[in-house]
Simulated scan of single mutants.
Amino acid sequence: MIVQMLIDGIAVRGAIEHENYKQKWSPQYEAGPTIEATEATFRRYVITDLLDDYRDATAPAERYVLAALLYEKTAELILLSNARWIGAGKYLPRRLAEFDPDRAAALAAPLVEGRHDQFANRIAIELDRAGGRVQEGFQR
């Protein structure tokens, strides 16, 4: 993320400008993002749908694709629900581990080890922590 690079980076040129950016953006970065209730509900809806598909999937390729999406969407929901910045690619599990190493490990272990039922159960636990499943009657 650009803001993090500005805050944590070392100025090669323009040290004064760099310091000004740091002072301007540090408070907003440290405060973390906010997630609106409608956005959180939509994210829970997406996870609910993916989780149902994952539990029903029998083809290995489908399971792997759905598992990757579930991990990504669930990790993002955990972070955003706790005013933490998300990341892309390798930075998403790093951000989650920085926030809560135990939850990060609990989410990743069954995924990495191919324990599909345990992974689905972990997603359900995190979904419940965020407010529960969203299905019938949901409108965006």
Rank of each mutant, 00 (worst) to 15 (best):
1 M>F: 03
4 Q>I: 05
6 L>P: 00
6 L>W: 10
6 L>T: 05
8 D>W: 02
9 G>L: 08
10 I>W: 01
12 V>Q: 09
13 R>A: 08
13 R>D: 12
15 A>D: 14
16 I>G: 01
17 E>N: 08
17 E>Y: 10
18 H>D: 07
18 H>K: 10
18 H>C: 01
19 E>V: 06
20 N>D: 09
21 Y>R: 07
23 Q>K: 12
23 Q>M: 08
23 Q>D: 13
24 K>G: 01
24 K>N: 08
25 W>I: 11
25 W>F: 14
25 W>C: 01
25 W>Q: 01
26 S>A: 13
26 S>C: 00
28 Q>A: 15
29 Y>I: 07
30 E>G: 03
31 A>Q: 15
31 A>P: 00
32 G>S: 09
35 I>Q: 07
35 I>F: 05
35 I>Y: 01
39 E>W: 10
42 F>D: 07
44 R>W: 09
45 Y>S: 06
48 T>D: 01
50 L>S: 03
50 L>F: 11
53 D>K: 15
55 R>D: 04
55 R>A: 05
56 D>E: 15
57 A>Q: 04
58 T>G: 06
59 A>E: 14
59 A>Y: 08
60 P>I: 14
60 P>S: 15
60 P>N: 12
61 A>F: 06
62 E>C: 03
62 E>R: 14
62 E>W: 06
63 R>L: 04
65 V>M: 13
67 A>K: 00
67 A>T: 02
67 A>I: 00
67 A>V: 00
68 A>L: 13
68 A>W: 08
69 L>K: 14
70 L>Q: 02
72 E>R: 15
74 T>N: 03
76 E>L: 01
76 E>T: 05
76 E>C: 12
77 L>E: 00
77 L>V: 04
79 L>H: 03
83 A>K: 15
85 W>N: 07
87 G>I: 02
88 A>R: 10
88 A>Y: 12
88 A>V: 09
88 A>E: 12
89 G>V: 05
92 L>S: 08
93 P>F: 00
96 L>P: 01
97 A>F: 08
97 A>D: 11
99 F>G: 11
105 A>I: 03
105 A>K: 14
106 A>E: 15
108 A>G: 07
108 A>E: 15
108 A>D: 15
110 P>H: 02
111 L>D: 05
111 L>R: 13
111 L>E: 10
113 E>S: 02
114 G>N: 04
114 G>M: 01
114 G>K: 02
115 R>M: 11
123 I>D: 00
124 A>Y: 07
126 E>S: 09
128 D>T: 12
129 R>D: 12
131 G>R: 12
132 G>H: 01
133 R>Q: 10
134 V>W: 03
135 Q>I: 00
136 E>T: 14
136 E>F: 07
137 G>D: 05
138 F>L: 10
